[in-house]
């Protein structure tokens, strides 16, 4: 499913050089819900951006469904992101010029396969409990609702992996709980892989795996005494 080999990311040059990721290797299987935790600036979002092909690694390789993504050109990366990856961002990042339904439909429209797009989008919005909000403009709904729309948008193309960057970071506790439960139920229902970056590990409760990023290195688990270096 996902295999990362010796991944490094260095920002800056010379004396300003910062090693955001240091020789990280890990693999994640289909249907796993994985939390990536760590302190601010530890490199967890950088790792997520690398997996999401939003940024280029300095060294190392990322295989998704057997494809070495580090060799893809810009157009192939865009297509790959569209078909194989779903994104849920901290601030939902919906397009405010579009309606809720149009936001969910967008990845499918970009892909260019529209046969069942609207039905799938409606079904997903029903699943996330927003069937009565689908014609509202995306800036007219609450933060919690927007994050649910983002989940639906992230799932519309049936991606291999859904990447969530602090999905509850901007929500109140009630909305956060709703989003967490929704992601976990979707993961179970669709056998969907979720990789979630968070610093609010507690509200996710039991998940399949927890990976801790510390000083650019990845460790299995979240208890310092039990952490195993992933390399």
């Amino acid at each position: 499913m996902l295999e990362i080999n010796n991944l490094s990311k260095i920002y800056g040059e010379g004396e300003n050089k910062v090693k955001a990721l240091d020789n990280v290797s890990l693999s994640i299987e289909q249907g796993e819900v994985v939390l990536i935790v760590g302190s601010s600036g530890s490199g967890k979002s950088t790792l997520l951006n690398m997996i999401g092909l939003l940024d280029q690694p300095t060294n190392g390789k990322i295989f998704i469904d057997g494809t070495n993504t580090t060799t893809l050109d810009d157009n192939e990366i865009s297509s790959f992101r569209n078909k194989k990856l779903g994104f849920i961002f901290q601030f939902s990042n919906l397009l405010t010029d579009l309606s809720v339904l149009e936001n969910v439909l967008l990845p499918r429209e970009i892909e260019g396969t529209n046969n069942t797009a609207e039905k799938d989008a409606r079904d997903l919005l029903k699943t996330v409990g927003l069937e009565d909000q689908m014609y509202k403009r995306a800036n007219k709904i609450s933060g919690g609702q927007a994050q649910r729309v983002a989940i639906a948008r992230g799932l519309i193309n049936k991606p291999s992996i859904v990447l969530a960057d602090e999905p509850t970071g901007n929500l109140d506790s009630v909305s956060s709980e709703t989003i967490v439960q929704l992601m976990k139920s979707m993961a179970k229902k669709l056998n969907q892989t979720f990789i979630i970056v968070t610093h609010e590990k507690e509200i996710f409760g039991d998940v399949d795996r927890v990976i801790t990023i510390k000083d650019g290195k990845a460790f299995e688990g979240d208890q310092p005494s039990k952490m195993e270096v992933l390399a």
Binding site: D74, S78, N82, F87, D97, P107, I110, E111
Partner: peptide
């Protein structure tokens, strides 16, 4: 700019 970034992230080509 932000919308462009979002669109690129969800697969829009240049």
């Amino acid at each position: 700019t932000k919308e462009i970034g979002i669109m690129r992230a969800i697969g829009a080509k240049r």
